[in-house]
């Protein structure tokens, strides 16, 4: 079996296209929403009354401990049960898949990010809360001006790391037939059984995108956290 370099090079274009149009879009949109949701969960876990907080914590645990593919299929099934495809006839199937994908990815990873935020919030000394109380700052202001900016500094590298993890999970979109990069690779390779070339290219694109980002996060971590 020869490695068909020419075929591999031909595959780079379409794969990069799928990468930019789907993988990257889902990752960026998913990370931003997940970072916001995660913060809301983390603050909620400190501010809500105990019974609601316990329910929230449990729900987050369940989401965190159950698989993404199952959640993706679940989201599509819900969408179908509400007759979604017929309600939005103008939106094409792929876009709907991507939107559902972003929703599921962001909720799923928000549960991990919430844990990171929580750790960041817990790492802030009691003195900061006490100083804020001594100045009678309103609770919202304490969060916005004192706690969140400090927690964010300690949490940022972790958030970045979860975003990278999310990025590498995007091929799960295959299960709901969203044409992201690996799906595209499989389709291209399947025609002539030239899987070696396409998956090598797909793997290299992943590596080229995630490795430098991960190294950057590690540097950031050293700078911000210690």
């Amino acid at each position: 079996m020869e490695f068909d370099l020419e075929f591999a090079l031909e595959a780079v274009g379409p794969l990069l296209m799928a990468f930019l149009q789907v993988t990257l879009v889902v990752t960026v949109a998913g990370s931003v929403i997940a970072a916001l949701l995660g913060l809301i969960w983390a603050v909620g876990q400190r501010e809500l009354p105990t019974p609601i907080r316990m329910v929230l914590t449990w729900v987050l645990d369940v989401i965190r401990m159950t698989p993404l593919p199952l959640q993706l299929l679940f989201a599509v099934a819900i969408f179908i049960s509400f007759d979604g495809y017929r309600r939005f006839p103008e939106t094409d199937v792929e876009t709907i898949g991507m939107i559902l994908g972003v929703a599921v990815f962001s909720v799923h990873y928000s549960t991990y990010m919430a844990e990171s935020y929580r750790a960041g919030i817990e790492s802030i000394g009691r003195g900061q809360w006490e100083a804020a109380t001594a100045l009678s700052l309103p609770r919202i202001r304490v969060w916005r001006a004192v706690i969140i900016p400090q927690a964010l500094r300690a949490t940022l590298p972790s958030l970045g790391n979860w975003a990278i993890a999310m990025f590498k999970d995007t091929p799960f979109l295959l299960v709901i037939l969203v044409p992201e990069m690996v799906a595209k690779a499989k389709q291209l390779g399947g025609a002539s059984y030239q899987y070696t070339e396409v998956f090598t290219v797909a793997g290299l694109i992943f590596l080229a995108a995630s490795y430098p980002t991960a190294v950057l996060m590690r540097k950031l971590e050293k700078k911000l956290v210690y």
Binding site: D169, L174, V182, G203, Y211
Partner: peptide
Amino acid sequence: EFFRGTSLVVQLFFLFYVFPLF
């Protein structure tokens, strides 16, 4: 770094689709 950087699904597809070719 290789295994961290390339996605699990890609690695799995290598084992499932590429290895049989060899």
